[in-house]
Design a binder for these strands. Structure first.
Length: 365
DNA sequence: AATGCGGGGAT
DNA sequence: ATCCCAGCATT
């Protein structure tokens, strides 16, 4: 829920406008009110930085100075002019839209946000941008910059990707527009996001609305906007055995390639569907080291998250029964004492087991 | 709601 | 390496 204060509502837009009019950067499409030129610039600026766009914009307008010129051009010519800018559907849509403007709108861009959105490649953002900057309409924009600024100034705790939050941000962006000034105000918000209210290191000491910023007050400016929750990671159940043979414990070294390569671990592995934990452990120990064990009591359960999956590790005390340990499906095996364990590198997920081991050993001494 | 779509600059 | 950029269309 977004709850702007009256002070924010009244003071922030004016402060931003004043700041923007003093401090805005030079851009070749600023200062023109040619709707065609503004449209081209906005399409090019979709997901693309000002510095990347500038040379393309200049070349494009020279080559296709009007809607009619663009509509008459061959697609191949348009694409050639776009070459290197990326997102080439933008160029195809631009060409299509130009033809549509000639055919349906007499060669003039439609003058409402709603009609603008009927053009291919023109969504809610671009429609608002052209409507406000080219036609002076009080239409809002919401892009990555505006989203970041709003989430910080109004301390929006929910991820702005969520549809419900999007809806509120659009409403707020509209509400903030000083009547008749949407063009400059929208640009001011984006300019602030691009130069001051930066994603990682916002320059709050240079921000014209810092005193009105809720995130800054609570020192949360680098934690907002919140990123969408990532998808739940795939999960695996793992078993491992602390296998005793007299005073020694069996460990094995993982093969040098792959996950956790070269680290030592307690023998074990993934539990297969339908297997009990103990069945899986006996099987894995046999496959990995070639020995038979009796699985005893469970000594630890460890939850661990890797970057792209997570595991639940069940550790069991085991007793050596028969066979000779050898590196069958691992790089090396070794019988060691509890005291020696600390000399070997273990994955983080095994540290809990190691700790348990030290503790229980001391207790039995 | 999730993806695909490009290429480059900042960290 | 990862994030992010004056987003849109498609599924």
């Amino acid at each position: 829920m977004i709850r702007p204060t009256n002070r924010q509502l009244h003071e922030a837009p004016e402060a931003l406008l004043a700041w923007f009019r003093r401090r805005q950067r030079e851009m070749p499409w600023r200062g023109t009110r040619d709707p065609y030129a503004i449209w081209i610039s906005e399409i090019m600026l979709q997901q693309t930085r000002v510095t990347a766009v500038t040379p393309y914009y200049l070349r494009f307008l020279e080559r296709f100075p009007t809607v009619g010129a663009l509509a008459r051009a061959r697609l191949g010519t348009v694409l050639k002019c776009w070459e290197g800018l990326g997102y080439y559907s933008r160029a195809r849509n631009l060409h299509q839209a130009a033809k549509q403007i000639v055919r349906d709108f007499g060669g003039q861009l439609p003058r409402t946000a709603e009609e603008l959105q009927t053009l291919p490649g023109v969504g809610r953002y671009t429609a608002g941008a052209v409507a406000s900057m080219a036609f002076g309409l009080d239409e809002p924009v919401l892009d990555g910059n505006v989203t970041r600024v709003l989430c910080r100034v109004f301390r929006v705790a929910e991820p702005p990707k969520q549809q419900a939050v999007q809806k509120q941000l659009w409403r707020l962006a509209r509400k903030l527009i000083p009547p008749g000034e949407a063009g400059d105000f929208n640009q001011a918000m984006m300019e602030l996001g691009a130069t001051i209210c930066l994603p990682r290191n916002p320059r709050c000491d240079s921000c014209p609305i810092c005193p009105l910023c809720r995130a800054h007050r609570y020192n949360e400016q680098t934690r907002l906007p919140r990123k969408a929750d990532k998808k739940p990671l795939p999960h695996q159940t793992i078993v491992a055995g602390v296998i005793r043979k007299g005073p020694r414990i069996l460990i094995d070294r993982r093969r040098p390639e792959g996950l956790l390569g070269g680290l030592w671990e307690f023998p074990g592995g993934k539990v297969r569907p339908g297997e009990t934990l103990r069945q899986a452990l006996r099987r894995e120990v046999r496959e990995e080291t070639g020995i038979e064990v009796r699985v005893g009591r469970q000594i630890a359960v460890v939850q661990h998250a890797y970057s792209h999956f997570r595991i639940t590790l069940h550790a069991f005390a085991c007793e050596y029964q028969s066979g000779t340990a050898k590196p069958v499906q691992c790089d090396d095996v070794k019988w060691v004492t509890v005291e020696q364990l600390s000399q070997f590198a273990f994955p983080k997920a095994n540290h809990g087991i190691l700790k348990q081991l030290e503790t229980s050993t001391k207790n039995t001494e």
